[in-house]
Computed example of a mutant assay.
Amino acid sequence: MRLLHTSDWHLGRNFHGASLLEEQAAALARIVELAREAEVDAVVIAGDLYDRAIPPAEAVLLFNDTLAHLRQDGAAVVAIAGNHDSHVRVSIYDPLLAALGVTIRGDVRRADQPVLVQPRRGGAPVAIYPLPYLEPAVDGPWLARGPEGDNAAPTRLRHEDVTRLALGRIHRDRQGRPDHHAVLVAHTFVAGGQTSESERELTLGNVDRVSVEAFAGFDYVALGHLHGSQQLDGPRVAYSGTPLPYSFSEQHHTKSVRIVELDANGNASVERVPLGVGRKLCTIEGCLEELCRAPQYADAVEARVRVVLTDEVLPLQAMARLHARFPHVAELRHRPPEVLRSTASSRNQQVRQASSPLALAAAFFADQQGREAHPAEAQLLREALEAVDRGGER
Rank of each mutant, 00 (worst) to 15 (best):
V78P: 08
A127F: 06
V162E: 10
L332S: 08
V210M: 03
P56K: 11
E271S: 09
A330K: 10
S240H: 15
P119S: 00
L21N: 05
R293E: 12
V43D: 02
L49V: 10
I284T: 07
H181A: 13
H374D: 15
G241Q: 02
E23R: 00
R333Q: 15
S7W: 02
R177N: 04
I31F: 02
L340G: 14
G193Y: 02
Q349K: 15
M1G: 13
A186T: 07
F63V: 00
R341Q: 15
F364I: 11
V329N: 04
T343F: 08
M319D: 01
R177W: 09
P375Y: 07
G392F: 03
H227A: 11
D233L: 03
H181W: 07
G228W: 06
A344K: 08
D299E: 06
Q296W: 09
A363M: 05
D179N: 15
V32F: 12
W9V: 04
E58D: 13
H87V: 09
Q118G: 00
L275V: 04
L34Y: 12
R52W: 00
E39Q: 15
L288Q: 12
E393I: 08
Y93C: 05
L34R: 11
L67T: 00
G176P: 03
R352V: 15
E383T: 08
I128V: 14
D139I: 09
P130S: 03
E22W: 03
S198V: 00
V388N: 02
S256R: 12
L167I: 04
G140Q: 11
F326E: 09
G47K: 08
L49G: 02
A238T: 02
V117K: 07
Q72T: 06
G286Q: 04
H181L: 15
H5M: 09
S356M: 01
L96G: 00
L309H: 01
R30D: 08
D311P: 00
A354M: 12
Y93S: 13
C292H: 01
L165K: 03
D85H: 00
N83V: 10
A27I: 06
A376Q: 14
V190Y: 01
S211H: 10
R109V: 02
F365K: 09
L184S: 02
V313N: 08
A57M: 01
V277H: 13
L4N: 07
A320I: 07
R200F: 04
G146Y: 01
E213I: 02
R200M: 05
L4V: 02
Y297H: 10
L314T: 08
L116D: 09
R321M: 12
S269M: 10
D85Y: 05
V44M: 06
R272C: 12
E197S: 07
A25E: 02
S240F: 14
R158G: 14
P274H: 01
V270P: 12
D367A: 15
D8L: 13
R304H: 12
P336K: 03
A27G: 05
N265T: 14
R145N: 04
A300T: 09
D112F: 06
F364L: 14
Q113H: 15
E135Q: 14
H323Y: 10
E197F: 00
H5D: 06
V212T: 13
G47T: 00
A363P: 09
